[in-house]
Design a binder for these strands. Structure first.
Length: 411
DNA sequence: TGTCCACTGGAACGTACGGCTT
DNA sequence: AAGCCGTACGTTCCAGTGGACA
């Protein structure tokens, strides 16, 4: 017991005090008591939803703003307190926050809402219409207000259209006891134009745009959280402002700023330092970028990985410009070697577009006149990292030393 | 000025699967 | 057991297109 190989490491955790006082406070999901620089937004939403306490159905609300501008947290902040106050006077308000990145079909939206009001439904098997009927019946079984917050609504709309939105905006005419209000959040400013006009007008009875934070405002936000999150004096001079400045470069994203600060402190702790230094923040910045890419790549389906590998292989070749045609040629060869059934060019093209959405590759549609119209593709993440991550895959391993040169030479 | 390449990207459809209702 | 339903992944078909070249 005295000479366990982990003793040295574990002892360090026991003996030296943690940098963190409360780790949770530094997560973007935490809702603090104060939200600096969002007073107006909080008041606005509070006024809009407050009418619920007076038995009126609140207007439907549209919230715009880029990522990390506080849309989600302000919504949570306001609805949480609204629920508390409603409970204290015996009113029944249910709030459902739906993240449309995960809940991206009509069926899933309704299934989630059903779960919430105590009408569990299977995750597949029922007609969507049936789920809606059940939801409506259960909801109307007593007097209550349901506030549905659609976070990143554009993702739901993109995949499944506005069917469910239409139904939900109309539902109040059918309900006798219960009422439904909608809060829609999106970071796509032009999104509203793509909605069905009927849905659009009833969804945006009220509207609010969240402006990005500037560097100073981000500092305030970080300072506020740091008070609770860290022991006193562990953040050295300039750490907070560096986090703020780095995040402000990326359109004033508060989530990013918080992540930077938290990860920087984690790195400091791992390095057995008692204080967080600016160098830790820089390391954190690199680390976060790396993690994001890794997460995106590792979970890709095999076919997508193979298409990406084709891009990688071509990037390594002497070719100056990579087009979809070349990628497909290489892809077919990769399929031969790995023994996988190839997908069609059409499908490969879709996968390439998905990779572009993820920010893994750059794509640009170009016309080469006589020589047709195609898409120029390039890797937008480090090739070395792409290789390291993809080569963990069973199939990619088989083609890890594939050389595009011979193939291109033949043509 | 018109042609025509090498695709792009929308739409409809097919298949496999888990899981429901009757 | 039969008949649906939603989801994921893929195919087939094909009209549309930007711009270098004859």
């Amino acid at each position: 017991m005295s000479d366990h190989p982990l003793d040295a490491i574990f002892d360090r955790f026991i003996s030296s005090p943690s940098i963190f006082k409360n780790h949770e406070v530094l997560r973007p999901s935490h809702i603090p008591d104060k939200l600096p620089h969002r007073d107006y937004e909080i008041q606005f939403l509070g006024k809009a939803l407050g009418s619920a306490l007076r038995n009126n159905r609140p207007s439907n609300i549209f919230l715009y703003g880029k990522t990390g501008t506080g849309k989600t947290i302000v919504s949570k902040y306001v609805t949480k307190y609204l629920q508390e106050r409603a409970n204290s006077i015996g009113k029944n308000i249910i709030v459902s926050l739906l993240n449309c990145v995960e809940i991206d079909t009509d069926y899933r939206v309704l299934a989630r809402l059903c779960d919430l009001i105590g009408e569990p439904v299977p995750f597949t098997g029922l007609p969507t219409d049936e789920v809606f009927q059940r939801f409506k019946a259960k909801l109307d079984s007593k007097k209550q207000l349901l506030i549905v917050v659609f976070d990143e609504l554009d993702k739901l709309h993109q995949k499944s259209g506005d069917n469910v939105l239409y139904q939900l905006t109309r539902i109040n005419t059918d309900l006798k006891k219960a009422q439904v209000s909608l809060v829609c959040i999106t970071n796509d400013l032009s999104f509203k134009e793509t909605l069905d006009p009927r849905v659009r007008s009833s969804l945006s009875e009220e509207e609010l745009v969240f402006k990005p934070y500037n560097s100073l405002q981000l500092e305030d936000i970080l300072a506020e959280r740091a008070k609770e999150g860290f022991h006193e004096g562990v953040l050295t001079e300039g750490v907070i402002s560096l986090c703020a400045a780095l995040a402000a470069q990326e359109h004033g994203d508060a989530r990013r700023a918080l992540d930077l600060l938290r990860v920087a402190a984690e790195i400091a702790e791992r390095e057995n330092e008692s204080k967080v230094l600016q160098s830790h923040v820089r390391k954190a910045s690199k680390q976060i970028e790396k993690d994001t890419i890794q997460e995106a790549l590792i979970s890709l389906p095999v076919q997508t990985k193979l298409v990406l590998w084709a891009v990688y292989v071509l990037e390594k070749s002497t070719l100056k410009v990579i087009t979809t045609g070349d990628i497909y040629k290489v892809y077919l060869e990769l399929c031969k070697t790995t023994g996988l059934d190839p997908i069609t060019p059409r499908r490969a093209n879709s996968l390439l577009n998905e990779l572009s959405m993820l920010g893994v590759v750059n794509t640009k549609v170009v016309s080469m006149g006589r020589y047709g119209r195609t898409t120029k593709v390039s890797l937008s993440v480090s090739p070395r990292q792409t290789r390291n991550i993809l080569c963990e895959d069973f199939y990619i391993k088989k083609v890890s030393d594939f050389n595009a040169q011979t193939l291109l030479g033949k043509d």
